[in-house]
Nucleic acid binder design. Structure first.
Lengths: 356, 356
DNA sequence: CTGAAAGCGCTTACAG
DNA sequence: CTGAAAGCGCTTACAG
């Protein structure tokens, strides 16, 4: 017990060198696995290192080499299945390339995102993957570029930044899902997102600061327009940030003059909340209200009815982002581009013709 | 584009010092926020730092101070809701105390756990929280202690190690849940876990290497014994690692001479798989088979019927572990102990009297 | 209050 | 193949 109480100075190359009776440089060479050393001496050093339980100080190593071997990832909310799946994809790609990952949460707040980025830059990460909370406000990201740290955007793109982005095909996905519902006869639809409520309702889709949401909304709206349905912008609702807010959004929607008969949920958290709202209102799916949710989250397949979803292949998105960043770190010559990962509609049982 | 292509040398205290026309030491003092500096000079330095976009190199800082400000966390699987919730609790506690968190996955494999621990020690984390894959095989954890790095065990305890552990009250939780089912008349029960199958069936609960599972199984078995039910050990099944394996386990169980009428799932992933297995077998819950799952995962409340669960307060567990580790890092005098976070049974609709 | 020097534990030329 | 020295960017005594 007492032996661990005092945080003793850890054993260094110098200690190993002394024990092995060689110079620091020689010990460092075998311990660091670089340069050339005779087998005999190598064995000596290894034996000494093992005896002393030497563990390299990666901090010092990074200081000398200028590489930390760490990839920084800033996500919106690690508890969201979307992000934890993405992080696994990123981690897998990173590990394969010999990098480790350090994760920070922004809570989708610009301020938190800024400090997370600063922190990671401070730790001298070799590269950064970030899910920008807003596609305006990007000074901190410009700074990352100026600092020469490779950057890949995830899930959302900011063309003005001139960096790679890995996203879904959000517009197409929204179009497919919306059309699917329109084709089944729905004339009153609503799109529901957890984004902060733009006060005063949505005037202009171009002003939505999250590019993924913007493109989905644009896809949604375009289908409504092409079907000749009125006021498509009024069918887009924000603010479904928690169960209570979602209940309010859904209740307000359903008490309108022409209530929607079909709902499109912007992510699986919103989808789950909508499901609960409808359930608590005693409405049944799909006979009273149809719904489709983004993301093939686990809960969507075990409800009654199971939920029709847009499968986003988030793991692949994460993996691709990780691979892309590694390529950048290693200076592979590559044009800056936006990589889109395709989605597909998984038809289950939550959409029917508008009923009664 | 070209300006970011070359990863330019980053700006250092020396650069700022030169621009502010002061010594390195002085610049370092204001930039590092230590020592005393006149307001006038402080302003000069800050202005220069802002102009140059100085960002401290935390690596160098850590080298000098011997503190990294990082807490390392090794979890079984970050995609498991149990761990992502725990990580949020840990992160919150860490952030509050001014620490950052770096997460590594072990996939519940001892080897991966060992390298993750080595890696984190190499990065000179200030402390470590680990979910030991096995409660035997703990050389690497002994080494952590010998290196003087504070360590807190999460979810599972290893008394021989003499370090703090934060766990649930697994035995009591299992007892409560099992009793609940026995009290409703069940005489044939089974406990199902995703742990690797011990070849040859379970002989001795003491040999289960994961203490959380062991204690749950012991609780489960003790209730069966006290109810005078035969062969309690045979009612414990491992290997429900994925859907296919779980289907096999469930099918085997239900085809026995006296098939179980009530199932206890060791975690929410296993619970979900069991739910699907039963569903695909056309069995209904609870009229054909009753079930209870550990962890109040989101899917459990939206199924039909909603699932009766053991609510584990995982966020609190994580927070407590984080706080405890911080206290250790900061040398708060505290006895080594095992902290148990209480659980509660959330009764929903998945248990009924054994029917038919 | 400010500065010059040493040191943290590595790696990287540069000699021998 | 091996060693002595300088340097990475900070902080920390030690002087002045």
């Amino acid at each position: 017990m007492e032996d661990s109480a005092a945080s003793k100075r850890s054993v260094t190359v110098a200690d190993v060198a002394k024990a092995a009776k060689v110079s620091k440089a020689t010990a460092a060479r075998v311990l660091g696995g670089y340069g050339v050393v005779s087998d005999k001496i190598k064995d000596q050093v290894m034996a000494a290192a093992a005896a002393l339980e030497y563990r390299p100080n990666e901090l010092a190593r990074s200081m000398s080499t200028g590489r930390s071997g760490i990839i920084g990832v800033v996500v919106g909310d690690i508890e969201n299945a979307f992000f934890s799946l993405a992080v696994r994809g990123i981690s897998d790609a990173a590990r394969l390339a010999g990098y480790n990952v350090i994760i920070a949460n922004s809570g989708e707040k610009l301020d938190a995102e800024k400090s997370a980025v600063d922190l990671l830059i401070g730790k001298r990460v070799d590269g950064l993957i970030v899910t920008p909370a807003r596609c305006d406000g990007m000074d901190h990201l410009h700074h990352v570029r100026r600092a020469g740290v490779p950057l890949v955007l995830f899930d959302r793109s900011i063309p003005e930044l001139g960096v790679d982005a890995v996203t879904g095909d959000d517009r197409d996905a929204a179009i497919t899902a919306t059309r699917y519902m329109v084709d089944r006869g729905h004339r009153h639809l609503a799109y529901i997102s957890a984004m902060d409520d733009e006060d005063g309702g949505l005037i202009d889709t171009g002003r939505i600061s999250n590019s993924a949401v913007r493109e989905r909304v644009e896809g949604f709206v375009s289908v409504l327009k092409e079907a000749g349905l009125p006021n498509p912008l009024c069918s887009v609702r924000f603010g479904a940030t928690d169960q209570q807010q979602t209940d309010a959004v859904v209740r307000r929607l359903l008490s309108e003059a022409s209530p929607p008969t079909a709902l499109l949920a912007s992510d699986s958290l919103v989808g789950l909340r909508i499901f609960r709202s409808l359930q608590s209102l005693g409405l049944s799916i799909p006979s009273d209200v149809s719904m489709i949710s983004f993301l093939d989250a686990d809960w969507t397949s075990v409800t009654v009815p199971p939920i029709t979803v847009i499968d986003q292949r988030v793991y692949d998105m994460g993996k691709l982002a990780g691979e892309r960043l590694v390529a950048r770190i290693e200076r592979t010559p590559l044009a800056v581009e936006r990589l889109r990962v395709g989605t597909s509609l998984v038809v289950r049982g939550s959409v029917a013709a508008p009923g009664r």
